[in-house]
Amino acid sequence: MQAYLVRRAITFVITAWLAASIAFATLLVIPGDPARIILGFDASPEAVAALERQLGLDLPPLVRYGQWLSDLARLDLGTSLVYQMPVGQLIRERLPVTLPLTAMALAIAVAIGVPLGLFAATRRGGAADLLAIAFAQAGIATPSFWLGIFLILIFAVRLRWLPAGGFTPWTQDPERTLLSLILPAVALGASRAASLTRIVRSSALEVLSADFVRTARAKGVPEGRVIRRHVLRNALVAVSTVIALEVGQLLAGAIIIESVFALPGLGALVLNAVSNRDFPLVQGIVICLAAGILVLSLITDVLYAYLDPRIRYS
């Protein structure tokens, strides 16, 4: 087990380095000039050149890459060109928005997807199954920004139950903060709930037709127990294997949802950073997102080994 973990840690570092280097290389070929964006419309060429010198943008790419890597090794993500603040601090400021948003969306997805998928599988072909499938298909086929706008129109403008957008800091009024995250989390989680419904349903169907379930049934084990012992467990295995992927999808979706709901999260930050050509900031965010997803997939693998009966029984 220890050898396995060491090996995983090494591959984790290599993969993270590769992901970071892809980001660096991408940003090298992106057209656009951060100094000019900072100075604006009517900046003189001299002023632009002076600022570039000041920001170190006139150095050759390889020198910048080396510098950046050695900073990274010391966990220093550099300084944002536009905000003139440490990238690490900028990212930390945004986490209290994006992490709860993603977590809530994931919770919604699991809370809807797992029971609905199981329920549909046990009533395969029936009206309930059809409804569940219809929900799942509709959920996947609806663009999230579209859903978000309709949620705002219904729950904020018409009914006035929830805020239309914006974010109250947790320290100010936690209750309102939570309220302001509900609509975005629903808009973000809906399509994931739909996709989980499908995954759980098909994995449950597979288990229900498996030999050991038939044996259990034949031995007279009550249906409820069969579902709990075998089907639910296997459904959870199926869910756990896709969780890293789902979180990746949620983080990507957050980029759009945060802009629909005016949330000051990581997605809004990265969108701004890309359009401002704030290279250190984009790299920093990309590395953090990639590292997060890689850590999750590591956890998934370990979890998988723990949950999968085949591995445990062997």
């Binding site: 993969t15 993270a16 590769l18 992901a19 990746g248 890309v274 990309v286 997102l289 590292a291 997939s297």
Partner: peptide
């Protein structure tokens, strides 16, 4: 492949 998969697809599209 792991490194590419670690990018949220939409972020990749924006880049």
């Amino acid at each position: 492949m792991d490194a590419v998969a670690a990018y949220p697809p939409l972020l990749l599209a924006i880049l």
